[in-house]
């Protein structure tokens, strides 16, 4: 992650700016539990600006050791490589106690998962119910 250093100054600038403006991309996350399964619902745009928040939410949910973590991306309308990297990081943190599943319903999320073949590693479902029942 050598990129982080060279990029540091502008990302600080960005943080300062987004505090005074709602024009930048935004992402919202929420977790709900169904027995020992956690559903992380994500909405908004996941790009290089918002991916750190997405990753934080993923790792926080994993930290509570759910049997299944369903990442519901139905409300996400943009998903960049930074978001895919976050998902890979989460996948690598899972162990035999937790299974990671994704819900993706539109081209903005399905295509990035297909193009990178990440959908071969992390099961992708069309609905949350299907993901929970799988």
């Amino acid at each position: 992650m050598g990129v982080v250093n060279t990029f540091d100054s502008s990302s600080q600038l960005e943080t300062a700016e987004s505090a005074e403006s709602a024009s930048g991309p935004n992402v919202a996350t929420a977790v709900e539990w169904h027995d020992r399964s956690a559903v992380l619902t994500v909405s908004g745009e996941i790009d290089m600006v918002t991916a750190p928040r997405f990753e934080e939410a993923l790792l926080e949910a994993l930290h509570k050791e759910p049997a299944t973590l369903v990442v519901d991306l139905s409300g996400v309308d943009f998903f960049a490589s930074a978001g895919l990297s976050s998902l890979v990081t989460a996948y690598q943190r899972t162990d035999e106690h937790t299974e990671l599943r994704v819900v993706a319903t539109n081209s903005a999320t399905v295509r990035p998962l297909q193009v990178t073949a990440l959908d071969n590693k992390i099961p992708v479902h069309a609905t949350r119910e299907e993901a929970l029942a799988a």
């Binding site: 990129v3 060279t6 990029f7 100054s9 502008s10 790009d47 290089m48 943009f78 998903f79 960049a80 490589s81 930074a82 539109n106 081209s107 903005a108 399905v110 295509r111 990035p112 193009v115």
Partner: peptide
């Protein structure tokens, strides 16, 4: 088509993010 639009938005974002990382102040 819908998939190509998604691909183009993603491609343009990746292009621009790699350039933004290199840009002078």
């Amino acid at each position: 088509d819908v998939d190509s639009i998604a691909d183009l938005r993603l491609a343009v974002d990746e292009v621009c993010s790699s350039l933004v990382r290199l840009a002078t102040a």
